[in-house]
Amino acid sequence: MMGMDESTIAAVALTLKLALVTSVLLMLIVTPMAWRLSRWQSAFKPFVLAIFSLPLVLPPTVLGFYLLVAFSPQSPVGEVWVSMTGETLAFSFEGLVLGSIIYSFPFALQPLYGGFVQLDSRYLEVSQSLGLNRFHTFIKVVLPLCRAPALVAFGLSFAHTIGEFGVVLMIGGNIPGETQVLSISLYEQVEALEYEQAHLLSMALLLFSFSLLVLLYRFSGKGGLGWNLSSR
Results as ranks from 00 to 15, higher is better:
Val30Ile: 10
Pro55Trp: 01
Pro111Ala: 05
Phe65Asp: 01
Gly115Ile: 09
Ala70Cys: 03
Phe138Thr: 08
Pro46Asp: 08
Phe47Glu: 09
Phe138Ala: 04
Leu18Ile: 07
Ser53Phe: 03
Leu63His: 00
Asn133Ser: 14
Leu58His: 01
Leu124Gln: 11
Glu87Val: 09
Trp40Ala: 07
Ser72His: 14
Glu79Asn: 15
Leu130Phe: 11
Phe107Cys: 00
Gln128Asn: 08
Ser92Met: 11
Ser42Thr: 12
Phe71Thr: 02
Leu119Met: 15
Leu145Met: 12
Pro106Val: 00
Ser129Ala: 15
Arg39Pro: 02
Val97His: 04
Pro46Ile: 11
Leu68Ser: 04
Ile102Gln: 00
Met27Gln: 08
Tyr123Cys: 08
Gln74Ile: 12
Val77Phe: 07
Leu20Met: 12
Gln118His: 14
Ser83Gln: 15
Leu58Ser: 01
Met33Tyr: 09
Pro106Asn: 03
Ile9Asp: 10
Val77Gln: 02
Met27Cys: 12
Arg147Ser: 12
His136Asn: 13
Val57Lys: 04
Gly99Ile: 00
Pro73Val: 14
Thr61Ala: 09
Gln41Ala: 10
Asp120Met: 14
Glu94Cys: 08
Leu49Gln: 11
Ser72Gln: 11
Thr85Lys: 10
Ile101Asn: 02
Trp35Gln: 06
Pro32Leu: 06
Gly131Leu: 06
Pro59Gly: 08
Ala108Phe: 01
Val30Pro: 01
Leu20Ile: 12
Ile102Cys: 00
Arg122Ile: 15
